[in-house]
Design a protein around this nucleic acid. Sequence first.
RNA 1: GGAGAGUUAUCGAAGUGGUCAUAACGAGCCGCACUCGAAAUGCGGUCGUCCGUUUACGGGCGCGAGGGUUCGAAUCCCUCACUCUCCGCCA
Length: 433
Amino acid sequence: MIDIKFLRENSELVKENIRKKFEDHKLPLVDEVIRFDLRNREIKQELQALQAKSNQMAKQIGGLMKQGKKDEAQVLKDEVAGDKGRIAELAEEEKTVEEEISRRMMVIPQIIDPSVPIGKDDSENVEVERFGDPVVPDFEIPYHTDIMESFSGIDLEAAGRVAGNGFYYLMGDIARLHSAVISYARDFMIGRGFTYVVPPFMIRSNVVTGVMSFDEMDAMMYKIEGEDLYLIGTSEHSMIGRFIDQIIPEEQLPLTLTSYSPCFRKEKGAHGIEERGVYRIHQFEKQEMIVVCRPEESPMWFEKLWQNTVDLFRSMDIPVRTLECCSGDLADLKVKSLDVEAWSPRQKKYFEVGSCSNLGDAQARRLKIRVKSADGKTKYLAHTLNNTVVAPPRMLIAFLENHLQADGSVTIPEVLRPYMGGTEVLIPKKSGK
RNA sequence: GGAGAGUUAUCGAAGUGGUCAUAACGAGCCGCACUCGAAAUGCGGUCGUCCGUUUACGGGCGCGAGGGUUCGAAUCCCUCACUCUCCGCCA
């Protein structure tokens, strides 16, 4: 969501930005907004003049009524009645025009950061840096569900019967490992100065539309029947939503928070063959980090945020790389975004385990998250950022594949052992494939 | 889920159809005066948002949210949200 004043004064820039994102079908929206905006201000001028007049008259009528001059009051009443129709007409048009503006503004993309590589889809994302050696062992790495089964750690069949495709039962050591990763990630972030939060797992529609674009909403969000409530797709939603309509004193910034939540996603669209198992599911758990900061600090926080995820994965000896999202792969609210990918020795390629985004003032504008300057004289929109710390089901894939030994056992990295009751290695319950 | 009471500026709170909505009254905060300094006291200032002319102004909207009645709504009516108390139910 961009500022309509900015659009008014920089329409070419806004159009250029749309082209960069290969969303040319949205180009006409810019001039449409400008037309509607012009009309909107004309309406306001006429409407407000009429309202001022009628306020004035109402006061006069009040005075006359008090003095008992009913006849004189009646004359004024009749005069006001004459404007009533026009006022209603203008108010109606104002409403329509503002809806037209807002509908278009909601889909005009945020101005992307100049550093974002230009490309039309995720195939043109750009690798930035690798951390750790992507090792390919000399034995075959089974599919992650097979590894889990060797520990009697997963039951997808029963989950299918109970909830359908896209759900899972994790069991035993695998379930424990899942919890251990979450707990470790939580403490990892607390250690980096973030405040731990457990947020609501459902949010109202006004928060939903405040934190994400329509496309994302349609593809992701589950609605609760008969209620104005949606299951969160990530705790970012309720964490950013927490600041709706708030004016935050500048001294309190930056707000650095880490939150735990289950995440619910429709995952509309085709699922590839490599997305079986727990890779792409309707429900998973995630440790998230969000930052609300001053605009000039958001690029700095962006760098810090993704670094946290890289460090977390490296502390568990999992090779990762960072990948910058190109313009066409960037959701409309995002200024810049970077994926963290973990190494899959089975697929011999990296796959996404986290996503770090700078939303600029887009969410803040929609949700009215403002900052009051230290001297109290000015107010401005905050910047918001979010990043995955870790989403265990998906990270378990990377974990199991990278720590699997030739004998089918899985070693537990030092940092996780305290969360696993001191366990150093998981021994298969039955022979793996 | 049922019953009752609430929601007004930074906070407490008055206001039940019209010169009481830049909001009484009290407190906090900022400035000034008084003071060697402080306290006390006195005076002044202490919302948001939009439109228009732009050092400054003028106007619209906002009393939990959204509708309605009226020339005029904080006040009357409807719907909804939230808070508190009691009951029920539950972890």
